[in-house]
Design a protein around this nucleic acid. Sequence first.
DNA 1: GAGAAACCGTACCATGAGTACAGTTTTGGA
DNA 2: TCCAAAACTGTACTCATGGTACGGTTTCTC
Lengths: 213, 213
Amino acid sequence: MSTVLETPKGKGEATRERILEIAEAAVLAKGFGATSIEEVIAEAGLTKSGFFYHFKDKNALAREMVRRYVATNDRLFDEIFGRGQQLSDDPLQAFLISLKLLAETMADLPNGHPGCLIASICYQERLFDREIRDLTAQSVRDWNARFRTILDGIAAVHPPREPVDLDDVADMLSCIVDGAIIMSKTLNDPGRLERQIMIFRSCIKLMFAPPLS
Amino acid sequence: MSTVLETPKGKGEATRERILEIAEAAVLAKGFGATSIEEVIAEAGLTKSGFFYHFKDKNALAREMVRRYVATNDRLFDEIFGRGQQLSDDPLQAFLISLKLLAETMADLPNGHPGCLIASICYQERLFDREIRDLTAQSVRDWNARFRTILDGIAAVHPPREPVDLDDVADMLSCIVDGAIIMSKTLNDPGRLERQIMIFRSCIKLMFAPPLS
DNA sequence: GAGAAACCGTACCATGAGTACAGTTTTGGA
DNA sequence: TCCAAAACTGTACTCATGGTACGGTTTCTC
């Protein structure tokens, strides 16, 4: 936090990070329940004892995975929506720019989006304790609130053409992204995520942009 | 097929159906990997031998679950979008009516939408064989094509205000629904699914309906 | 009443989560 | 340089679950 680079951590921290990264990839491909600790430690190159030195149990692993995922996503959103605000003073234009940036970022992922951890957990809710479910719920609420704030700024300048609930429009972005990730993965067509974000962008234009001519 | 009622099946068929129903609920709550055959047979009231008499292995169970899920969904869509066409000759109005019906149907589910089996499988792809993944992919393609056909009919009468790719708009519905199901479940707020379908409906209106006045 | 369909019972194997605990290496700081 | 804490390794269990094998029993249907 105090330096631009990551604060230097001990060797253990690096191992933890490696475990979390491997585990996340496995969970997104097979689900938490079907991800064995054995395969994670095999890929990470350490023993079962080593794993349990870092994580009390599988649930502790899940908790840290979610924290990591949420933090990474928060940083990405900070960057993308901050950049949009830098590039235009008009809140609508800024948002449209950010959405384009988001679409490009998703399109640039080498093998397509690996998946949304929150969605993965949602479809295995019974496997997790209350703390983890609260964590996922709160992160979704935070993201929705972030988008809602942006929309408030837009609506103040550009009154919507049709009466729409801004909370619902804010929710819509997360829904589109999560749904498009699923469609991309199911159809094995990574491009669909980018296109869905762009079509959402068109909807925003239709809602707030003044009609041409 | 030949009669209005389900063709009468043997007793075994009823058991199969019961197993599939219980298994589907369990899979949507905990994921396929974490759903044990033991708990399914316990709830169904039969033994492990009985289970394996009906299904070769867990993958065969998954295959039949998907078939069942897709068939049920197809029937629902047939009904809802057929009903819309009955109620208006204008393709746009018919679609808007159908979307309203869809939203109401989702709102009427007693404990909220139980979850999308295709999404659940998508987040555990490695657990399933090619046949199952092909099945889920094909069903998504079919649904998208269905919506695309409807949109073609609309665009022929009501040219879109803004250039939009109709394939993307068609995809959008599935994405919204899948994403909204996840949000509903994660936030434990079933109402969000209905509202997202209605906001999608607003977007359709904005795209195709002529501006008022 | 015979044969097929729809099961039950039992025994068994392999895998993976998780526990326990003692021992070993590595690392950073006084 | 040495010492203590951190970061592991190794072994040896328990328990639950998926899955196999196979023979026996009930129940339905023609």
